[in-house]
Amino acid sequence: MLVLSRKKGETIIIQDHIEITVLGVEGDTVKIGISAPKHVDIFRQEVYLSIKEANKESAAPSTGNLNALMDRLRSQK
């Protein structure tokens, strides 16, 4: 992990296309602005993990459907 110190108004550039700017600091809360191309998805970590888990659940076959399919395949033999 790269660790950088930035002050209010200072920016970090990632691969010529993404800019992260420190907009403000209040206590232990840092407000940042992110400029990136529209095709780049940007999520807070907790939102990203929730989306990832929902996708994983929707892609996994349910046990009931899998058992029904296996029974059907067995009966075709």
Rank of each mutant, 00 (worst) to 15 (best):
G24C: 07
G24F: 12
G24L: 10
V25F: 03
V25W: 10
E26V: 07
G27L: 11
T29L: 09
V30N: 00
K31I: 05
K31N: 11
K31Y: 14
I32N: 05
G33K: 05
G33P: 00
G33N: 08
I34Y: 09
I34H: 11
S35H: 11
A36D: 07
P37D: 14
P37M: 15
P37C: 15
K38W: 14
K38F: 15
V40S: 14
V40W: 15
D41M: 13
D41C: 04
D41L: 14
D41G: 11
I42V: 15
F43E: 04
F43S: 07
F43M: 01
Q45S: 03
Q45M: 08
V47G: 00
V47H: 04
V47L: 02
V47E: 02
L49I: 06
L49S: 01
L49R: 05
L49F: 03
S50F: 04
S50P: 03
I51H: 01
I51N: 04
K52N: 06
K52D: 07
K52G: 00
K52H: 06
A54I: 06
A54N: 05
N55T: 07
K56P: 05
E57R: 15
S58Q: 08
A59E: 07
A59V: 10
A59K: 07
P61Q: 10
S62M: 13
S62D: 14
T63H: 10
T63A: 14
T63D: 13
T63M: 13
T63K: 07
T63S: 13
T63P: 02
T63R: 09
G64L: 07
N65G: 12
N65V: 02
N65T: 10
L66T: 04
N67S: 12
N67L: 12
N67M: 12
N67G: 09
A68S: 02
A68F: 03
M70T: 10
M70N: 11
D71M: 11
D71K: 08
R72F: 02
R74H: 03
S75R: 04
S75N: 11
S75H: 07
Q76T: 02
Q76E: 01
